[in-house]
Design a protein around this nucleic acid. Sequence first.
DNA 1: ATTAAAAATTGGTATAGACAACTATACATA
DNA 2: TATGTATAGTTGTCTATACCAATTTTTAAT
Lengths: 240, 240
Amino acid sequence: MINKNSPVPLYYQLEEYIKGLIEKGELQPGETLPPEREYAQKYKISRMTVRQAINQLVNEGYLYRQKGKGTFVSERKIEQPLQGLTSFTEEMKARGLVPGSQLVHFEIIPAPSPIAEQLTIAENTPIYDIKRIRLADGVPMALETNYISAHLAKNLTEQIANESLYDYIEGQLKVRIDSATQVIESSIASKDEAALLNIAEGAPVMLIQRKTFQKEGTPIELVKSIYRADRYKFMIELKR
Amino acid sequence: MINKNSPVPLYYQLEEYIKGLIEKGELQPGETLPPEREYAQKYKISRMTVRQAINQLVNEGYLYRQKGKGTFVSERKIEQPLQGLTSFTEEMKARGLVPGSQLVHFEIIPAPSPIAEQLTIAENTPIYDIKRIRLADGVPMALETNYISAHLAKNLTEQIANESLYDYIEGQLKVRIDSATQVIESSIASKDEAALLNIAEGAPVMLIQRKTFQKEGTPIELVKSIYRADRYKFMIELKR
DNA sequence: ATTAAAAATTGGTATAGACAACTATACATA
DNA sequence: TATGTATAGTTGTCTATACCAATTTTTAAT
């Protein structure tokens, strides 16, 4: 379980191990974790290293501690503060759900005027047009359409269906996502949308349009998402 | 600066001290912090304790580290005054519309269990229950229901119909609003709601539930708003 | 002056142990 | 019965030290 000869830090190995138990459901919400000293003894590592692993998971909201009592698995919250800029994949994981995708459409098209304008590229520049049904625990959660310049995103294949586009952008393209603007509005599902999301026509949906930027303020991509209102709430913390 | 006899943990004393320097501007964004070993030596505490303080601030986004280089003050994100946490009144003014209100309901009621829980007060404690139609340029924009403890909000009269509740809280009560959590979801208008908002039954609406807090994290009030989807979009900027 | 090697400096990981603060339980006492 | 007390087990704080990894600075060689 814990490999002392691995270049991966011990605290991180333990962190991933515990996180795995939670995500696989082998540790249920509310359940008490073994005490820190037990982990230390069992894996022959120091208690401070165990604490470092657990601290991370507490920060990420997977666990919470109570002095004198123990460490517990957090409840799965469908309402979790979106403290920042996360992808669908990250967000669902954070909520304790298994993210998935189903490719509906994958094509390179010449950018129509309004989209080109938003991405600050010339009209008819080739862009990817990717439409996916996003799943959470296998159930349709949202319909997502991404537009990203084909010049920027080279070698993008249909493989992306099962991956996180943000991981691809940051991992493969080495483009750092810095910020985004997001417009949220309420609407009702059209016939086509309803069919893809497996809901009734006219059912309420949440429309989210996001534009992501890199550091210099250059637009990276556009996303149009349609979320099922019965399965998705958007939560945000406001500070003044 | 650091008091070893205080019951306040050393790491927390240091954390608050550094945070203070940043907020007062004595540490500018981009500036390098003194190395961890220097703090340890200067305040006669161990380096691990210094790291615990700095870790917290890194987690909160105040600082970031670079191995081999140092620890730096973050550029942005913290402290964006009034970036989102605004009253209906302020928001409409910012959009160039004239805000208005129409009182629908004004009463002191014993707090039902779910609301009492949210406000962390005892069940059946008296609270104000205020329902108003919010207007923009005279046209109904939203239906807003406020819940605020009657102990906290003394002398609140029906006059509030035409005023900003937030102005009253900060101006009259001298309670500083610090932050809020906001849950946004999509729904469709009920018969009653539709009548008050002058829209069709079943038309899409945006449901916004806001809980505001003062500095210490004590809840101040709850707001349940129902916005007309055809007149209102919610926009937010996300930073990572 | 340029380049390469070495040293110094910085944050990252890890250990072992100590005591404090808090919780739950069992037991003794009034 | 109610209340205090002892105890064991938990997380919280803190120390002192060591070595690793990344980066910068200094030194030495060419």
